[in-house]
Nucleic acid binder design. Structure first.
Lengths: 211, 211
DNA sequence: ATGCGAGTTTGCATTGAGTGCATGTTAGCT
DNA sequence: AGCTAACATGCACTCAATGCAAACTCGCAT
């Protein structure tokens, strides 16, 4: 008998099966988007490639765009966790700077094949860009809430939101500009280079706020 | 004979007609979105209300979302103009702060009926939010370019983008939090109150950077 | 004023995303 | 083995959006 203490509960057969199908969908979609392009790939084709019915696709992802962001809340979770693990001596700005740097270093999703595809599609397909920005914004809201909760005396709700917006906005702006510099396709293809760019953008953008 | 010196050229009959139809579409859409909701209003209904064929709608707006942003580049233009009219003594941050404050004061589109509808839909309809964020981002890119052009010695491309992202991000974050505070519907209904909120958010967000 | 051409309007057909519904199928638990 | 809830699937449907071709209208030069 396998002993697990406080870890994730043993996934049932149903859950494992569902997870396998989900992953098959993501992989199939990534491959086809890469090969044929986003608009040229239909949901029906993705479903067929994963050997499920077209209708069933929407039981896994609410829309075609959603499959590009299979765990969209990972970044927000990492950031909030980093805020929770703060040094009692740090102020709000320091904590947030460190949290965002942590994310830039350890973003797990950055290495998945889907991440590379997504990066390219972000720059070319409006619908994808829109979805990404929505996710980014709701992450920002969560982070602002967490930050305000961590510093109830120093920050009010609006102040926390403004500060969070300023730092994430700076990182995004810098990243956007960096990606424009060189051939975006080249960067997206190389996971290490991509990660390096994120680090670089974070570093450049946050330099101002470092204490 | 009407004498016009250097002003806009006399619009031809064709152009006037087209502009009238365009406005009729915007008005009809605003009214129907308000009354029935966004998803519940079809493009065919909007077209019918403006007395044109459904197909023709797409000759005026590329998508259903686009009708919510009838002159999407107004804000970017105002900001860039404010950058152009800078005081030679000002630094990049001061110029950008002043430019964004100018926009908050004199945003012409803020009073149109569509602006109120848009504000409400932004918070409730994902597609609208996505489109708004896309427009916001491309505006940011233009502003960053203009800022870098204005300060080629002080700023590089990435620095300009990071700075622009920081300030606009702060304003957006603050505005978002402010809108959440009270009943968003109430605010959107009152154009003056709405404008006041934008001013307030800008003021709060940019306080840090004021010299 | 006449008529040619570019810009517009429109209907029709088509594709593809997404939803509601009703019906089968399967895992999990007793 | 049998019951139940979750899941899969097909079907019909709505709606956004596009391509195409035919009609129409304004602007302009002759």
């Amino acid at each position: 008998m396998v002993i697990r203490e406080h870890g994730a509960p043993v996934p049932s057969l149903r859950e494992r099966k569902r997870e396998r199908t989900r992953q098959a969908l993501v992989d199939a979609a990534a491959e086809m988007f890469e090969r044929k392009g986003y608009d040229e790939t239909t949901v029906a084709e993705i479903a067929a490639a994963a050997e499920i019915g077209t209708r069933t696709f929407f039981g896994y992802f609410a829309s075609k765009e959603d499959i590009l962001f299979p765990d969209s809340d990972a970044r927000a979770r990492t950031t909030i966790e980093a805020i929770a693990n703060r040094d009692p001596a740090e102020g709000p700005v320091d904590v947030l700077v460190r949290a965002l740097e942590t994310v830039a270093e350890t973003d797990a999703d950055m290495v998945s094949p889907m991440a590379a595809v997504r990066m390219r599609l972000f720059r070319t397909v409006p619908a994808v860009r829109g979805k990404a920005l929505q996710i980014q914004m709701s992450a920002q809201q969560e982070i602002a809430r967490a930050l305000q909760a961590a510093f109830p005396d120093e920050l009010d709700r609006v102040g926390a939101a403004a500060l969070t917006g300023a730092l994430t906005g700076a990182v995004n702006g810098a990243l956007d500009a960096l990606m424009d510099d060189e051939d975006a396709a080249t960067v997206a293809l190389d996971a290490d280079l991509l990660r390096e760019r994120v680090r670089q953008a974070t570093e450049l953008a946050l330099r101002t706020w470092r204490s």
